[in-house]
Computed example of a mutant assay.
Amino acid sequence: MIKIWGRVNSVNVQKVLWCCDELGLPYERIDAGLQFGRNNEPGYLAMNPNGRVPTLEDGDFSLWESNSILRYLVMQYGGAGHPGSGRPAAGHDLYPAEPRLRASIDRWLDWTLSTLQPAERSVFWGMVRTPAAERDMPAIQKAADACGKLWQMLDAHLEGREFAEGKAFSIADIVLGAYCRRYLGLDGIERPALPRVQKWYEGLQRRPAFQRHVAPALT
């Protein structure tokens, strides 16, 4: 059984847990990070010198960076055509092999790390992990406005689409959906109209794995 090190309220851990559930993949999760510590201990740093979560252990193989973990899980365990899967193809392929489609999925995974997460971070920390009396609401709203412009990019992209890329649910939807929860799920900020994002997100909310790992209250 694989091990996933990380706390359940980390968006990057949530992505990995969501993916595991979509694959029907058993795992053991071990609390690490923030109040749980462990991520700065020598044993953890030997697996992940960044000292962040999540970290994946699969036998003698360890891997860090959440989006890389998603790719690995699907390639290793995601169905027929993937080495080591030992199972028939599932109803959909979370990470299709066709080069243009895979590159399009990778684009969104890279975009969340390079562009969306840095913009989102101050909004989330300001509204969820800062006491209400200490919040700098003008600064938070300014950051939320910047996030809104990024989500408008996805809203335009979703014209005529049910999923982020291709005709099926993929790890692009997992990654974008986890961050969307942190944006649409916040009270107290103003957001632009995002009708296509809202419809897409409502579809994600119906997935059992989303309900288990991403829907719980933000903390």
Rank of each mutant, 00 (worst) to 15 (best):
E65S: 04
P54K: 05
I69V: 13
L73M: 02
S68M: 09
I69P: 01
R38W: 06
S62V: 12
L34V: 13
R52V: 12
G43M: 01
P54I: 11
L70F: 00
E65Q: 09
G37I: 11
G37Q: 08
V53L: 08
L73G: 07
F36Y: 15
G51L: 06
D60Y: 03
A46L: 13
Y72R: 05
L56Y: 07
L56K: 02
D60H: 07
L70C: 02
G37L: 12
D58W: 04
M47H: 01
P49D: 14
G43S: 12
P49V: 10
L63W: 00
R38P: 03
N67R: 13
L56N: 01
G51H: 07
S68N: 10
I69D: 04
D60M: 11
A32I: 03
T55Y: 01
L34Y: 14
S68G: 08
V53K: 00
G51A: 09
Q35A: 15
L45V: 04
E57N: 07
P54V: 09
F61E: 15
E41D: 15
A32L: 08
L73S: 01
D58Q: 03
G51I: 00
P49I: 13
T55R: 05
N50H: 11
N48S: 06
L70M: 11
N67E: 06
S62Y: 09
A32H: 04
L63C: 14
D58I: 12
A46Y: 03
L56R: 02
R52T: 13
Y44F: 15
S66C: 10
E57M: 10
N39A: 15
E57K: 10
T55K: 03
R38T: 04
R52F: 09
N40I: 09
P49Y: 07
T55A: 15
E65K: 02
G33M: 05
N67V: 12
L34Q: 14
